[in-house]
């Protein structure tokens, strides 16, 4: 009996959440459409304002919920690294450094993101570290290119051929080797590469719309068990 009641409560919860998700989704979509609609909606002058007002509130609530998830994220980070330290995993010293940094940033950040302490952390610790890491990309691109530039089949042959033309077309020596190289490079980037990119973007746009529609009609429910 208890199991049946639990199952019924769970079912009602799932249906309730799905109904709320669909209604909210449709309302925000209607708000977006009404916002761009010139003139009154169905001859009712106040309807646009009502939809706009409710849509504004719903988006505002979503922003608050998202901000709250950041707190849960911090809890996750702390619990993961505390566990690393407790179980004495290799390199757990880095977990200690991370937790100390987290507490230090919280203390320095009490004055807000524009305070001197926060600015110091961003300008002299975070940004240089990020720049250093992204600087590694230059080396990683070289090693990736070394591996990718091996002709294995027709596809990789064209990959390598086009890459060499574009590389030579970008640098001054290409012009000295053959004056047409920069022109061919421009044609490759402007015609076949752009056409391919637009084809991919078209597919991605359709895939995104399909995903959105599935969530909107309640067919995909990532928010329920």
């Amino acid at each position: 009996m208890a199991a049946r009641i639990n199952a019924a409560i769970s079912w009602i919860g799932r249906v309730g959440v799905t109904v709320v998700a669909i209604v909210v989704g449709l309302f925000v979509l209607a708000d977006m459409a009404a916002d761009r609609w010139a003139g009154t909606l169905f001859g009712m002058s106040g309807l646009k304002q009502i939809i706009g007002g409710v849509g504004y509130f719903l988006v505002g609530w979503a922003a608050i919920v998202i901000a709250f998830t950041l707190l849960l994220g911090v809890v996750n980070v702390v619990s993961v690294h505390l566990r690393q330290i407790q179980t004495k995993k290799p390199n757990s010293i880095y977990s200690i450094v991370l937790l100390v940094s987290l507490v230090a940033t919280l203390i320095f950040g009490v004055g807000g993101p524009t305070s001197g302490g926060s600015q110091f952390i961003f300008d002299y610790i975070l940004q240089p570290l990020e720049s250093t890491l992204f600087a590694l990309l230059a080396i990683f691109i070289a090693t990736a290119a070394f591996r990718a530039f091996r002709v294995r089949d027709l596809e990789t042959f064209f990959f390598v051929l086009f890459a060499i033309i574009v590389l030579l077309g970008q640098v001054p020596v290409g012009l000295y080797l053959w004056s047409e190289l920069p022109v061919i490079k421009d044609w490759i980037l402007d015609v076949p590469a752009l056409a391919g990119t637009r084809g991919i973007l078209l597919g991605v746009a359709l895939g995104t719309i399909a995903t959105g529609l599935r969530v909107l009609i309640g067919a995909d429910r990532p928010y329920t068990d």
Partner: peptide, 29 residues
Amino acid sequence: LGEEIYAAGAYLKDIPVHIGSLIAQDTMR
């Protein structure tokens, strides 16, 4: 590559709505 990532539900889990959306995507394309 590209839109292939959105086909995971259809290929891996055989979900009817995901397969249906793949055909709809192809038609709209």
